[in-house]
Amino acid sequence: MKNTFIHKNAVLGNNISLGNGVTIEQDVVIGNNSQIGNNVTILSGTRIGENCQIHSNAVLGGMPQDLKYRGEYTLLEIGDNNIIREFVTINKGTISKGKTSIGNSNLIMSNAHIGHDCVIGNNSIIGFSVGMAGEVIVQDWVNISGLTAIHQFSIIGENTMISGLSRVVKDVPPYIIVAHEPLRFAGVNTVGLKRREFTSDKIDELRSIYRVLFQEKRNTKFALELITEKFRKTVERDKILSFVEQSKRGIIKGYEF
């Protein structure tokens, strides 16, 4: 381990693998069986779970790129079984939320950036060179393709897929694929949902719900009322209704079915 610096107050678990040129500052915790590649920098306030792979030249826990940050104590929390590839940067939080949070079993590909106070769920794929501004929320089982730019405060619903080179400036509801410019609904995420063992009947239900949501010409409020009236209560129906009702930025546009 040439040119490696580990602060005496850092807490490292058992069976940690460290490459050359690693810097680990004070107030860092790394769980058991994690692998830290060459020239990785892990800054104060970072917490990393077990069985994580941090590849070469990643920088974790850097200062927020936000003018309201005044050096207050904040964290970056990363769960278990995550793969963080080369040159990824993840900033810690600001006074807004106090931390940036990454869940479990995510793949974050090379050169991606995750800004301050973001919340990433579980089992998601963040593609290469994805740029994620501050306070973005990504729910579970999301696939964000490469070179996508995501506006601050945007929310990406669970089980969605975002095509490459996308510009996300509105919220993306769950269970769908979004593509094109400007970004809009491109269908239900059939392949992803089948992999998660959603039945054909359930996928048809989701397709019908979104047909109402995106074809209703009057307004979104009326579309939600129609969905509530027309479709029986299910977990998926209610997640869609709740997501759209609570969206502050508004949701992406649809297309003609």
Rank of each mutant, 00 (worst) to 15 (best):
V212W: 14
I84P: 00
K194R: 12
F185W: 05
M161G: 03
I16G: 04
M63A: 14
G61M: 03
V191Y: 06
I83P: 01
L60G: 01
G93D: 06
I114D: 01
I177K: 10
S242R: 09
L67V: 15
Q35M: 05
S166R: 11
W141C: 13
N32D: 15
I176H: 08
D140G: 02
N3V: 07
S34C: 02
K217C: 03
I176M: 13
R237C: 00
K202W: 02
G45Y: 11
I42W: 11
T74R: 02
A58C: 04
G37F: 04
I84A: 01
E86T: 14
V40I: 15
M109W: 05
E245C: 05
R232V: 15
I177S: 09
T89Q: 10
R85Y: 07
V235G: 10
I209E: 13
Y73P: 13
G98W: 11
I83H: 06
V212K: 14
A179G: 08
V235W: 15
C118F: 03
L18Q: 09
D238I: 00
Q26S: 15
T220N: 05
S17I: 14
G79I: 13
E256S: 13
V188D: 01
R249H: 10
G37L: 01
G93I: 09
E50L: 04
M132W: 05
I227A: 10
Q215P: 03
S56Q: 11
V11H: 06
D201H: 12
R184K: 15
L75F: 14
M132L: 04
I144D: 00
E158I: 00
A10S: 08
K202P: 00
G13M: 01
V29C: 08
C118S: 03
E25Y: 09
I176W: 10
K221T: 08
S124G: 12
I30V: 13
L241C: 02
Y255C: 13
P173I: 09
V191N: 03
E72R: 02
I30G: 01
T74C: 00
T4V: 14
L183F: 02
N51T: 11
R47E: 11
I126C: 04
E158P: 12
Y73G: 12
Q152N: 08
Y69I: 15
T190P: 02
L213G: 13
I240Y: 05
I120L: 09
D80N: 14
V28T: 06
D171H: 02
K194S: 03
A10N: 05
T160Y: 13
Q139S: 09
S163F: 13
D204M: 11
S105V: 04
I126N: 03
K233D: 14
K170Y: 05
E256I: 13
N219Q: 10
N39W: 08
K170G: 01
L107K: 07
E135S: 08
T89N: 09
E229R: 10
A133P: 00
N104S: 07
G45R: 08
